[in-house]
Simulated assay, not measured.
Amino acid sequence: MANRKQEIKEYDLMLQKHIDKKDFIKISRTFKDREENIAGFLLAISKDFLLLQIDNEFLLDGYAIIPKTKFDSIRCNRYEKTLKKIHKKEGHLDSQYGIYQNISIKTWQDLFTDLKKADYHVIVECEDNDEPDFTIGPIKKIYKNKVGIQYYDPTGKLDVELTSVPYNEITIIKFGDRYSTTFRKYLRESTRKKS
């Protein structure tokens, strides 16, 4: 047990070095034999979560929170160092790097409370389910073991009922990206009435 605690401490120190050096990293993730990798800048770590600023084709495009139990490895080699140089030369590290809201990543309840307070619409994915789930929308209710999100469909129609997503199924939470921050302006209420 003491050996495992030492391994965790050393791993967290390595993660903190990536934060301190503003390293560009690639996080490898595998679910049901599918790779779901993500890359960007690691901004914060906690006992249970990583907070990442996402790269999307040489642009910084929102953030992701990943449970530490939901990734395989982190890479920072010559390729990632080249991508960091590109972001630096494009001015992103001076103008866009970081997060300006206080988003706690201590517990599920803390992080969803802060995301709700900051009025983010979230994309919550459960990629490890037999049928992967994707839920997008505003956070409406925060429970002990799950979060209630008002899902909207690809036409921008908000569901009447909340979609409940159990914390133990969540593999990634994304927010502040161009997709959700733009689409939210064009949402409409469902005309369906509650039965």
Rank of each mutant, 00 (worst) to 15 (best):
M1K: 10
K141S: 08
L111M: 15
I136A: 08
I173M: 06
R188E: 14
F112W: 03
A39R: 14
K84Q: 13
D153F: 10
D153T: 08
K32Q: 13
I149A: 04
H87L: 03
I149V: 12
K85T: 12
F24Y: 15
K185G: 05
I149L: 05
S190M: 10
N102I: 10
L158F: 11
P132Y: 09
E169P: 00
K157E: 15
P154N: 14
A64N: 00
I38F: 03
E7W: 08
G40K: 02
I19C: 06
I86M: 09
K26C: 11
T69E: 12
D177N: 03
D153P: 07
R75W: 08
G176R: 02
G91T: 06
L187S: 08
V122M: 02
I74F: 03
R192T: 13
R192M: 11
G176M: 05
E189T: 12
P138E: 13
K85N: 14
T113K: 09
K84E: 10
E10C: 06
I45G: 07
D130F: 11
V147G: 03
R78P: 00
L115C: 08
Q150R: 15
L43K: 05
T163E: 11
N77G: 12
R4G: 00
A118I: 01
E131I: 12
D33R: 10
F31N: 01
I172D: 03
H92P: 01
R75F: 10
Y167I: 07
N168C: 10
L158P: 06
T113S: 13
E189P: 08
Q150F: 01
D33P: 00
L162M: 07
P132E: 10
E35C: 05
N37F: 09
G137F: 01
C76G: 03
W108S: 09
Y63E: 01
N145K: 15
N56R: 14
W108R: 08
N102K: 15
K89W: 11
F58M: 13
F41Y: 13
E10L: 12
I54S: 01
K157N: 11
A64W: 00
T30S: 10
S180A: 13
I105M: 08
G156E: 09
D153V: 09
I65T: 02
Y186T: 09
R188I: 13
K146M: 15
I54T: 04
F41S: 02
Y167M: 09
M14Y: 05
G40T: 03
K5F: 07
E131Q: 12
G156W: 06
I99N: 07
D133L: 14
D110H: 14
D130E: 14
N102M: 09
R4L: 12
K81W: 04
D128T: 01
R178P: 00
D61I: 00
D177P: 00
Q109M: 13
N37L: 05
A39V: 09
F112G: 03
K116V: 00
K88D: 09
V147F: 02
S180H: 03
D55Q: 08
R34A: 06
I105E: 05
R184E: 13
K116T: 02
G40V: 02
K157H: 05
E36L: 07
E189Y: 14
D159E: 14
D177W: 00
I54D: 00
I139Y: 01
V147L: 06
A44M: 11
I38E: 04
E57C: 08
D177T: 01
H87I: 01
L13I: 07
L187K: 11
Y97C: 04
A44Q: 14
D12W: 06
T171R: 05
Y79E: 11
I103S: 04
D55V: 09
Y186G: 11
